[in-house]
Write a protein that binds this DNA or RNA. Structure first.
Lengths: 345, 345
DNA sequence: GTGAAAGCGCTAACAG
DNA sequence: CTGTTAGCGCTTTCAC
């Protein structure tokens, strides 16, 4: 593997000139540039990142920490981050927490060892104690996505979760549903808490109350949502409608409904939060509250790169995006079938 | 950020001793070990990877190059690689080629700059010219997955594509289908070519011939498969069955069939290659030829780590896994509906 | 076991 | 613009 010295020798210039040409870090004459570039090409020289990083103290790598890359929501996010970063000359380390806080910490420590230049973090908890641990582990510009963390001084880019919860609940309330089951995520995660808050507020606006018995937490896991749905529908007085707080849980609920031989919206209505790419080929075409994932991610990475470049960390910003209701076939007034021109389930 | 000197000073030992303790690279007494470890903990010391890499010439990072992380097949793969690598003390760089050969080369060059210790590569082409370019760009142990590359001296771990193609075709042929449309991937990619070969062989075994008009390449892209399906089904004499060579293309075909108001297996049968996690909640529950993705990936990463550790690159191996037919509701004899106890479409 | 010392390849500062 | 130089933090000899 050739070094910068070889290039300098070949091009007949000084080492520092080669460095200047490569990094455009000092003015260079056109003639020198071409000579250096030719030498680089001939030798097949590539700067050694480890040496650059060691010497400069900056790493040109951004860490992306997500719950589960297998979830289309996060793989879409990772994809966008990768592209934007590449464009800005950064590479990305993508890691999964599996929604496990200890593992999150372990990954953050690894990221620190790698001296990543910045972090995009979808954290597993939102409490202040977690915020403190985060600050202990993180020493680089960071933007939080998805769920906020109390007291953590980082930019936060996410869906307006209160609005999302409200949108889902309103849709059902308006149709006349009252016995609504909410399949929530995980207590302690702001996206769960705030969506729930949105639901509660919607109920209140209708002069109603969302009772605790109507809320079941499925930890954002499809199988748990499946179990909760089956259990709820088997009860003496089953819900007439279901709200699910995430894509995988919506899928779990759909599977449960199908396995029970229930139809939607005839037997039960359903609204899920998060987009589902192939919703329209499903037996039960769910009405969904979608997030503008691309815009959100671009904004996040933009904010991150900005705070990396000008090294002074600013006042933490909170940037919220509005959810969009995408209507399909899973909602109708309770207790009767609907004829909307589409066959359902 | 503290350095190894700080630790040495704090623990009252030599720098080289600290290094020996951390890397277990030389015998050390128990007393020294505890003293060093306490010092590390107290200071919060973390070795700087860039310095380790620079000095040792080894990087502890493995590059993973996939077509599209958004495809569940590849995100599952990435997940498994990440976990296995972490276990072995490696990190992973995951990058998307977007099925673009130039971009693949660009990524490989980046990987080289990063001095990755090894590569898991799902390449975009299989021809010998590509094999030569690969060898120019790659200078580390590598294992190819998914599609082979002619003349490239790397281990290859994949599905037995000929068997997969044959399995799909046999299933349909056995039911009596003759007008079968094959929605292929991309010419020049071995997974496409070999699956096609499998189909051809199956036809031959039945004394039939798969005509070129029956084959349409959709480049592994859902939208193109959608278009091909719509087009084929609108023809004067539409196919009675469809074979799709990848998960996204199967989804595209399903969407097309649904949009056309066609039912499966009543109007047309369908077999797809690749698993589809949520196949059972789809309007059209497709029979699929599945790959044992987890076993394949574990094998690949095992082979890679092995050739990284003992540095002599061995004879390239080819390890093939057998496909498994997962039957659902999308297959029946041509020209008549089937009553199998499940409602379809 | 210890301590000293030589770089890995690069950047950045400096005097010419 | 050039050439020289001093490290960045670590691993790895080597003599003790």
């Amino acid at each position: 593997m050739s070094t910068i010295r070889d290039v300098a020798r070949k091009a007949g210039v000084a080492i520092s000139t080669v460095s200047a040409v490569i990094n455009r870090s000092a003015p260079t004459s056109a003639g020198v540039v071409t000579r250096v570039e030719r030498a680089v090409a001939e030798i097949g020289y590539m700067p050694q990142r480890a040496a650059q990083t060691l010497r400069s103290g900056r790493s040109r790598v951004i860490g992306v920490v997500v719950p589960d890359i297998t979830n289309p929501h996060f793989s879409a996010l990772a994809r966008i981050v990768e592209k934007e970063c590449l464009h800005a000359g950064y590479m990305t380390f993508v890691y999964n927490t599996d929604e496990d806080t200890d593992h999150e910490m372990r990954i953050l420590r690894m990221m620190r060892m790698e001296r990543v230049a910045g972090l995009i973090l979808i954290s597993t908890r939102s409490d202040a104690r977690h915020g403190r641990r985060l600050q202990q582990e993180i020493h680089v510009p960071t933007v939080l996505m998805g769920s906020a963390v109390s007291g953590a001084p980082y930019d936060f880019v996410a869906l307006d979760d209160v609005a999302a919860g409200a949108l889902a609940a309103e849709k059902l309330l308006k149709l006349g549903h009252r016995r609504i089951l909410v399949i929530g995520g995980r207590p302690g995660v702001s996206s769960h808490t705030l969506r729930l808050k949105g639901c509660r507020e919607a109920f209140r606006r209708w002069g109603l109350r969302l009772e605790n018995e109507q809320i079941r937490c499925a930890n954002f896991i499809a199988d748990e949502a499946y179990a909760e749905t089956r259990h709820a529908m088997a009860a003496g007085l089953p819900p007439t409608a279901i709200i699910s707080f995430s894509n995988f849980m919506t899928l779990g609920a759909i599977r449960a409904l199908i396995d029970l031989g229930l139809r939607s919206p005839k037997d039960v209505s359903l609204v899920g939060v998060d987009n589902l790419e192939w919703a329209d080929v499903m037996r039960l075409r769910p009405t969904l509250v979608a997030q503008p994932i691309e815009a959100m991610t671009r904004t996040a990475i933009g904010a991150l790169l900005e705070s990396i470049e000008r090294r002074a960390p600013p006042e933490p910003r909170r940037i919220l995006f509005q959810p969009v209701l995408i209507e399909r076939d899973s909602c109708a007034p309770p207790g009767r079938a609907v004829a909307n021109g589409r066959r359902d389930l």
